[in-house]
Amino acid sequence: MSATAALGQIDITSTPHVPMSRLAKVEFRKALDTRAGRWFAISIVGLVLVVEVIYALVADEGSKNYGDFLGIAGAVLGYFLPILIIMLVTSEASQRNGLVTFTLEPRRPRVVVAKFIAGLLLGVSVMIMGAVVAAVGTVVGMLAGGAPEWSVDGNLLFNGFVLANLIGIFIGFAIGMLLMNTPAAIVGYFAYSLILPIAVGILGALSEGFEKIAPWIEFNTAQTPLFMGDYTPTGEEWAQIAVSGTIWLIIPLAFGIMRLLRIEFK
């Protein structure tokens, strides 16, 4: 206890702020220190492994290259990484530990930044593990009689694997912060990632006009060129990603951050 306490004043001049590195480290730890968080992260990597092994055993000889396995790892991660992020963000309200988090660091924007850093670190770590598992899958494919090509198309790596998953991570942040409730955010995420593209696909099949507009207004559809064909969106396709991304990612993310900064943690 400081001597100044007797006077009723607190001397804060010699107390530094909590550094961002420490906040981010704590947030990273919080993502993995519960059974739910840890096992979900392990399960994602495990699921990638299972899918890779099955693929290695059943795929055509000609499509057992490392690039193929990497694409599959990216697709599986793409579905589940956002949920890991959603759990990291929403537990503050659903598990109510936000009361403590925002009492120990009342300047909320710093906590938001720390969560972004932790979420990105977590995502990149899982992606690296996914890439390693893809290599394991490739070796299994080799043992099952394939002659894989190990070199990877740079566009596949950056667009189909890294960029697509980074988008997924930020989608997780947006939905998590916007809904601030774990079950609701996970349901919302699956509605966004599974139901929405199907609905758009059906509408597109019914109306040729809609099919043309769809990639401009539906983010999943717009992202398809990232992991199809030569993994290189054309100029128009990049524009579609930017426009639909603004609707489904940038705006929700902005509202989500605003909500997190104002919400009363009860």
């Binding site: 100044t4 107390t15 009492t103 300047r107």
Partner: peptide, 15 residues
């Protein structure tokens, strides 16, 4: 608290 708004106290857990 101690003359400061809580938000202005750095590393408030120490105080």
């Amino acid at each position: 608290i101690g003359g400061h708004l809580y938000q202005d106290i750095p590393n408030p857990g120490l105080h």
